[in-house]
Simulated scan of single mutants.
Amino acid sequence: MAKPNKKGPVKTVDVLCCHCKTLLFKYRKGGKGALVKCFKERISKDFTQQACTCPECNTVFAREMLVRGTPAYKIIGGKAIAK
């Protein structure tokens, strides 16, 4: 399968924790579908201290994995939203 476009989209979305509404990171998302995965190279600003964990409520909102050979966070359903 093809790798994701490195430059990616210009539009950024805020990724928030569903539990406490804390800003987790700003992400350059392409398309208009639901937030399923976040490629690490497309994260423009990261506000988390520990990977995949909310800094405010310590909820684990994603898992680290390789998607199409590129490091990404796979979002756990209902734990994080894009706004």
Results as ranks from 00 to 15, higher is better:
71 P>G: 04
47 F>C: 12
44 S>F: 00
55 P>G: 02
38 C>G: 06
33 G>T: 04
9 P>E: 11
41 E>D: 13
55 P>T: 04
20 C>H: 07
73 Y>H: 11
7 K>E: 14
37 K>V: 14
55 P>F: 02
69 G>A: 08
24 L>S: 00
31 G>F: 01
3 K>W: 13
32 K>P: 05
24 L>Q: 02
63 R>G: 10
40 K>T: 09
55 P>E: 03
31 G>W: 02
20 C>N: 09
19 H>E: 15
66 L>Y: 11
71 P>A: 04
6 K>Y: 13
62 A>E: 00
50 Q>R: 07
53 T>I: 15
9 P>N: 10
71 P>F: 06
36 V>C: 15
9 P>Q: 09
43 I>D: 03
33 G>N: 05
6 K>V: 14
54 C>G: 06
73 Y>Q: 06
79 K>C: 08
37 K>H: 13
77 G>S: 12
25 F>C: 07
39 F>D: 02
12 T>S: 02
9 P>C: 11
78 G>D: 01
36 V>R: 13
56 E>D: 15
35 L>C: 05
23 L>T: 05
28 R>C: 05
48 T>I: 08
48 T>Q: 05
57 C>N: 12
76 I>A: 04
57 C>V: 12
12 T>V: 08
69 G>S: 09
75 I>D: 00
54 C>T: 07
64 E>W: 10
30 G>I: 10
55 P>N: 05
4 P>H: 06
37 K>F: 15
55 P>W: 00
30 G>F: 06
15 V>G: 01
18 C>T: 15
16 L>E: 04
61 F>G: 06
77 G>H: 14
37 K>E: 15
52 C>D: 06
51 A>L: 08
21 K>N: 14
53 T>W: 01
35 L>F: 03
14 D>G: 11
81 I>A: 06
64 E>R: 10
54 C>D: 03
60 V>W: 03
50 Q>D: 11
25 F>I: 04
5 N>K: 09
26 K>T: 13
36 V>T: 11
15 V>W: 00
66 L>V: 13
52 C>T: 08
70 T>S: 07
2 A>C: 13
14 D>P: 09
13 V>P: 00
64 E>T: 11
53 T>E: 12
10 V>I: 14
35 L>W: 03
22 T>Y: 01
73 Y>I: 05
24 L>E: 00
74 K>Y: 15
54 C>K: 01
66 L>A: 13
20 C>Q: 09
19 H>V: 15
78 G>I: 07
44 S>A: 10
10 V>L: 10
15 V>T: 02
58 N>D: 15
81 I>Y: 01
50 Q>T: 10
7 K>I: 12
19 H>S: 15
53 T>F: 01
3 K>G: 12
75 I>S: 03
75 I>F: 06
9 P>R: 01
17 C>A: 09
2 A>Q: 15
80 A>H: 02
31 G>H: 02
